[in-house]
């Protein structure tokens, strides 16, 4: 036991000295489990996040918008892959992670359980949803686990165009007809609060925060990130000419931050627990894609095995 204590002390010393932890290094079991849960949840979010946007690919208003949206969604698939790979370095298998998603054991970001009803929603998703994700991901580039940190660096490089393509969609609508402006405001009204919820429960209710901060898995708390996000959005909203749907949103000179209303936590927990507008639809779509693709994965493996066998026979013949 003394041994375990000294291992843990050495581990914490590395963390305190900003030395990254790599896959083969000793780590507390709880650290490993926390990372697996967080990274896989993050991966699932990237993958499920493709669904609400995929809904608009065939209806994008121009070829320019369509290629951009396609490229963005393709990036999200890649983000899912980087993150699953990072989780796999901790000794879990991809299939087990996917099964946890499909059986509901693992969570994904609840924002993706909201529908994308209009084209303006695609703009709002890019601006607010990717915007909130970026805030979190920039912080995570400094996470203590090497593979997670490297995945985040790669992801952040790709993300910046996502937010811009969304904002540009909204900017175009803001300069359009009255109907288009209404559509823009409506999208912002629906996506503002769910985007703030993306940062997770308030610090006082977040069971994992203290330990995650000590291990430097996270470098900022949920509330710190949420505040940072609100602060940058206010000006961006002004340029779009939209009102953020919060009567209490105002500058607080003393704090040097914007004050905003309390989040509707009942709604948050309700969606997390599976009762959001699209939870069932999202999971059904994921499971269907996975099951209907099974024969392709099997056929590819059978083909690879046959090719390998044939190559082996040829080399023995030559010999």
């Amino acid at each position: 036991m003394a041994d375990l204590n000294s291992l843990e002390a050495k581990f914490q010393e590395k963390i305190d000295n900003e030395i990254k932890i790599e896959p083969k290094d000793w780590m507390p079991e709880k650290y490993r489990q926390t990372l697996i849960r967080q990274i896989s949840q993050h991966a699932h979010s990237e993958v499920v996040g493709m669904l609400p946007e995929g809904n608009w690919i065939t209806r994008a208003p121009s070829l320019r918008r369509k290629v951009a949206l396609l490229a963005k969604i393709q990036d999200e698939a890649g983000h899912g892959l980087y993150l699953y790979s990072a989780a796999e370095t901790l000794g879990v298998e991809r299939d087990d992670l996917i099964e946890q998603l499909h059986t509901g054991k693992a969570k994904y970001s609840s924002i993706f359980n909201y529908p994308t009803l209009t084209w303006a929603d695609i703009g709002a998703v890019g601006w607010l949803v990717d915007g909130a994700a970026i805030m979190n991901q920039v912080m995570l580039t400094r996470t203590s686990y090497g593979p997670y940190s490297r995945a985040m660096v790669r992801i952040c490089k790709e993300e910046s165009f996502h937010q811009r393509q969304g904002y540009e969609i909204l900017l175009t609508l803001s300069r359009g007809s009255e109907d288009q402006k209404r559509m823009l405001q409506d999208a912002v009204n629906r996506f503002w609060w769910p985007s703030l919820m993306m940062f997770g429960p308030s610090d006082k209710d977040s069971v994992h925060t203290a330990q995650a901060m000590k291990w430097k898995i996270k470098r900022k708390t949920n509330d710190e990130l949420r505040q940072q996000f609100v602060d940058v959005c206010v000006d961006q909203a002004r340029i779009l000419g939209v009102t953020l749907p919060d009567p209490n949103l105002k500058w607080n000179e003393e704090r040097g931050h914007y004050d905003f209303s309390e989040i509707d936590w009942d709604e948050f927990w309700n969606v997390v627990k599976g009762n959001g507008p699209c939870n069932k639809q999202r999971m059904d779509a994921r499971i269907k894609a996975h099951e209907e693709g099974a024969w392709v994965r099997e056929a590819a493996m059978a083909y690879a095995e046959k090719q390998a066998k044939r190559r082996k026979e040829e080399t023995t013949q030559v010999a």
């Binding site: 892959l81 490297r150 994965r297 590819a300 390998a308």
Partner: peptide, 17 residues
């Protein structure tokens, strides 16, 4: 980074993507 693929050729194609 890393990825899953049935064989080397597919691994290169996936890595490209």
């Amino acid at each position: 980074g890393s990825l899953h693929a049935a064989d080397a050729q597919m691994a290169i194609e996936n890595a490209r993507d």
